[in-house]
Design a protein around this nucleic acid. Sequence first.
RNA 1: UGACCUAUGGUGUAACUGGCAACACGUCUGAUUUUGGUUCAGAAGAGUCUAGGUUCGAGCCCUAGUAGGUCAACCA
Length: 552
Amino acid sequence: MSDTKGPNFLEEIVAKDLEAGKYKSLVTRFPPEPNGYLHIGHAKSICLNFGLAQEFGGYTNLRFDDTNPVTEETQYVESIKQDVRWLGFQWENELYASDYFDQLYAFAIKLIEKGLAYVDDSTAEEIAAQKGTPTRPGTNSPYRSRSVEENLRIFEEMRTGKYPDGAKVLRAKIDMAHPNMHMRDPLMYRIKHAHHHRTGDAWCIYPMYDFAHGQSDAIEHITHSVCTLEFIPHRELYDWFIEKLELFPSRQYEFARLNMTYTVMSKRKLLQLVNEKHVSGWDDPRMPTISGLRRRGYTPESIRDFCDRIGVAKRENLIDVGLLEFCVREDLNKTALRRMVVLDPLKVVITNYPEGKVEMLTGEENPEDPNSGSREIPFSRELYIEQEDFMENAPKKYFRLAPGQMVRLKHAYIIKCEDVVKDAQGTILEVHCTYIPESKSGEDTSGINVKGTLHWVSAGQALPIEVRLYDRLFTLEDVSEAEGDFKEHLNPDSLQVIPTAWAEPALKTAGLDERYQFLRKGYFTLDKDSTADKIIFNRTVGLRDMWAKKGQ
RNA sequence: UGACCUAUGGUGUAACUGGCAACACGUCUGAUUUUGGUUCAGAAGAGUCUAGGUUCGAGCCCUAGUAGGUCAACCA
């Protein structure tokens, strides 16, 4: 996985198993339930499962855990496949737990025949009561001692649709006093007269997670079934079914799920944000979903790098979202094309520059990449710079434009601020400057050294674009610690729309999936909402800003 | 009145399975820079939850605590 870090505990287990000859090669699986979109936490699991197989030789199946037809939809299947592919992984087989419904049904019958499963007519409430509590043993169901024949008959009747939803369930017969709650006669099948996204109306009984997941693993000869910590108590049951059914001995291993600062990572909460319109959808650029991050401008490389850096262990963790941001910046710095865009314009007039003249200047596409080439930038008498790059009364270490001060205009000339034009209220309308003709970029003979360099756009040729700036979705670092409703901590300023920013003309031809660095402003990418006459850019992440930090 | 998992700088992960705690992010200096970006050089920051024990030697082993997490959906 990583070459700088030691192996994580799963890599150690796998290496040991392979060395011991327990398996000849590795088979892992990524098992999403198609009832929501994938998020960055899933990316950790994907990188882990696919990464393990790649590292040790083997393959990974994509298996949809589609055992609950009332919450699952085909739209989710498609988004999940797209996200896994986009992250850069290729599964060996595309499989569905529903592919195994016949086999699972046969497994159930086998357990009934062995006297290890029974049909229970108890209500959900009664079953819950029978379970006992973690500290108190449960009690046997009155239906627990039905004969094998009766169980077989009724279970068959359940399958053929004789009973309504909830009338009966099939339970494993284990031990109602077991210290592990999951071993207290867990449910195997329930009745649901519901249309399944793949099997249609063929079934009206559906297996529960515990009776589907492990058996699916075994059917596929998964060697290492990797899941998150909350499934630890299920492992005993996982092993029990495999043992009693005498199946391929897949083994389950658990790691700690990813948590990140200033966001939530549960499908339930994310779905709530979508349904209650706190965000525009699953792919809102503020969402920690793969589709949201993609729309925001994150690259698959940066996400994989992130997953690599956070490591894999068994303890609860809360990763600083700053690490994710570091990963994209590092990637994008090397690859993003540079452009100049003024988000908050202030007009500058170069009083000694000829009126009507437009001069084409050259700027490199990416200074980090000597082969990236260059683009042309128009320069003229009237320009825009950022409001924040001018101060009438500048503090001591202010390197930008101020009365009497000189700055370099990136790729252009050094200018000097001569005059400030205000209206009756004292609001600054424009700044008048003079330029130094012999200070042109690349052929500067002026001998003048300036501290500050500003980005700018020629007013006459400027391209109007909409820019969307994003901030953290929540104001709370650890949202799980939130008292009351987590949505009370949503950041009201997580989205800032700038309807009209001024861009250099080269941005006119920007395409989706292209990433740009707007000089001194951050990394941006075209949003899918863009049209020919309305160009929209999302800010992926800002640049590190020592100056802003000092200001705080 | 239980079972299980976990415990290392601010965050996350390491430590050749017993040999004087490392890496990354973050933070702070300084240099370079036509992006206050990048790059480069350097610094601070934990003595490994606590108490015992074994050992020449313990973050790693043992015992007992403490703290956090998980488990009682016809969800996965």
